[in-house]
Amino acid sequence: MTGYELTRNWFDFSFANPDKVKPRHTALYLFSADLCNRLGWKRKFGIPTVSTMEAVGIGNYNTYKNTLNDLIEWGFIELITKSKNQHSANVIALCKSAEANNKALDKAIMNHSRSSVDIIKPQTNKTLNHKKISEIEISEVPIVDLVIYKYGIELRKVILDNASQKNIPIKKVEDAKYKNWLEPLRFMLQKDKISEKHLKDIINYLRNPSSEFWRKTILSTTVLRKNSSQILSEINSSKKTNVGKITTNDSLTSRLESYE
């Protein structure tokens, strides 16, 4: 079963059941298909709960669980092993639901193609690349870009806040294009092997008033990528210093208590 067959089958079902299907169902099923593809179309594979929720834009665990259960009930996903909690992964397999019927959608498409109504072309990466990232809705973003897009938007907000506090011109940040803003972050995660946790640490560090030099220096994702190793080194040093302070304070406290 190919990815084309899976998605065609899904949209046949979705078209025939508008009362059942919500955007979150489509997002979760397509993400599952994309993950299966990345894993070489394994028959059974784990789908990590937290990462999946973040990728498809579901913030509530119960909503995620209900969405997954719907896809299982409708026959699009087979649950092999249930996760113990929201921090572990379900093991699933993708299925071609027998409930899907392509006649209704095929007929609607044929009728539409005969009409004189102009067809609006869907957004593609090529058209997104040249749009300002501030003008793009999350619904336009391809599923494979959702995680990087969310980090990019969060980082852009931090940089704009820092620049406004330092009276630094922010036009380049405001005019940043989709590709130019997200590509350095993609390279950080994929080529530089910087983890999502490290990227989150960097963003949080740029919020910290104590990192004054970097707050006025990092004004683009390109500059961030060039300096990411140095920033992470400072973060690690800061953590070690704080641990040392805590240890020293605890030792001093225990000695003072011994005199009481």
Score class of each variant (00 low, 15 high):
Thr124Arg: 03
Asp118Trp: 14
Ser116Lys: 01
Asn102Lys: 12
Asn125Lys: 06
Val141Ile: 12
Ser116Arg: 01
Glu135Lys: 11
Ser115Ile: 00
Ile119Gly: 05
Met110Trp: 02
Asp106Glu: 15
Leu105Cys: 07
Ala104Gly: 08
Pro122Met: 04
Gln123His: 14
Lys107Pro: 00
His130Ser: 15
Asn102Pro: 15
Asn102Glu: 13
His130Gly: 03
Ile119Val: 14
Lys131Tyr: 12
Ile120Asn: 06
Lys126Asp: 08
Lys131Leu: 10
Ser115Phe: 00
Ser139Asp: 15
Lys103Met: 11
Lys103Ala: 06
Thr127Phe: 05
Pro122Leu: 10
Ile119Met: 11
Ser139Glu: 11
Ala104Leu: 09
Ala108Tyr: 04
Val117Gly: 10
Ile120Val: 12
Asp106Pro: 00
Leu105Phe: 09
Asp106Ala: 09
Ser134Thr: 06
Ile136Tyr: 01
Lys132Trp: 06
Ile143Glu: 02
Ser139Thr: 08
Ser139Phe: 10
His112Cys: 01
Ile120Ser: 12
Ile109Trp: 04
Glu140Asn: 05
Ser113Glu: 14
Thr124Tyr: 05
Glu140Pro: 06
Lys126Gln: 11
Glu137Asn: 10
Leu128Phe: 10
Pro142Tyr: 10
Met110Leu: 15
Pro142Phe: 14
Asp118Ala: 07
Ile138Lys: 08
Asp118Phe: 11
Val144Thr: 10
Lys107Leu: 10
Lys121Ser: 12
Ser116Gly: 05
Asn102Trp: 05
Ser115Tyr: 00
Ser116Cys: 04
Asp106Phe: 00
Thr127Leu: 08
Ile136Glu: 01
Ser139Leu: 15
Ala104Thr: 13
Leu105Asp: 07
His130Trp: 07
Glu137Val: 10
Asn111Ser: 08
Glu137Lys: 15
Lys132Gln: 05
Ala108Gln: 12
Leu105His: 03
Ile133Asn: 01
Ile119Pro: 04
Ser113His: 13
Ile119Ala: 15
Glu140Phe: 06
Ser139Ile: 15
Pro142Leu: 07
Asp106Gln: 09
Leu105Glu: 07
Val144Asp: 02
Val141Leu: 07
Ile119Arg: 15
Lys121Ala: 09
Glu137Leu: 09
Ile138Tyr: 08
His112Gly: 06
Val117Cys: 10
